[in-house]
């Protein structure tokens, strides 16, 4: 008699657990792992050399459709906030650097594009879904980790950037 309600409760719990998003481990609150990568124009850029500035690190991949939407939005943000002390770095995690170059060329963004062909930096930043946008504050601490991108998310980025620039 009492087995049926219990089974229902258990099934409901299972459904709820499946519906709730699992806790995604991020580096928020921790020091941003330093990296040095070659950029599209041949320069080597090191994250720690931007200490004192707010840094937005956007991990993208050619095969991630959302990257195509996000990169123009980030370019607009970079154009507006670069003078205020914001640094935008795009990091490609594509294994094929030649095709990643072509993709980045086609996107025509004004901020530096770096290539993590060994995916070692991606591992350090616990990447799970592409694209992923990390905001690092002036003291080098990861303050926001935005996973994925959908239309309108750039407004949330602006709020986060303004907050960090004010500090």
């Amino acid at each position: 008699m009492s087995k049926t309600p219990l089974a229902c409760v258990l099934a409901l719990c299972a459904l709820l657990a499946a519906a709730l998003p699992a806790a995604v481990p991020t580096l928020v609150g921790k020091a941003a792992p330093d990296f040095v990568l070659k950029s599209m124009d041949g320069r080597n850029l090191r994250l720690s050399e931007y200490r004192g500035q707010v840094v937005l690190v956007n991990f993208w991949a050619r095969w991630a459709g959302d990257s195509r939407q996000e990169m123009p939005a980030l370019d607009r943000i970079n154009t507006t906030y670069h003078r205020a002390g914001l640094v935008v770095l795009g990091v490609s995690v594509d294994e094929d650097s030649r095709r990643a170059h072509e993709f980045a060329d086609a996107m025509k963004v004004g901020y530096p594009i770096l290539f993590d062909t060994t995916a070692s930096i991606g591992r350090d930043y616990l990447l799970q879904k592409m694209p992923m946008t990390i905001l690092v504050d002036r003291s080098g601490v990861v303050r926001y980790a935005n996973v994925g991108f959908k239309r309108g998310d750039d407004r949330a980025y602006l709020d986060q950037i303004r907050e960090l620039l004010r500090e």
Binding site: N44, L45, E49
Partner: peptide, 22 residues
């Protein structure tokens, strides 16, 4: 200078990219 790669006894132990500042 752009980068230095070190091998000790034929095993790569370091690959260092230099930024302009470095």
């Amino acid at each position: 200078l752009d980068s230095v790669t070190l091998k000790i006894d034929n095993k790569e132990v370091k690959n260092y990219l230099y930024t302009a500042r470095e």
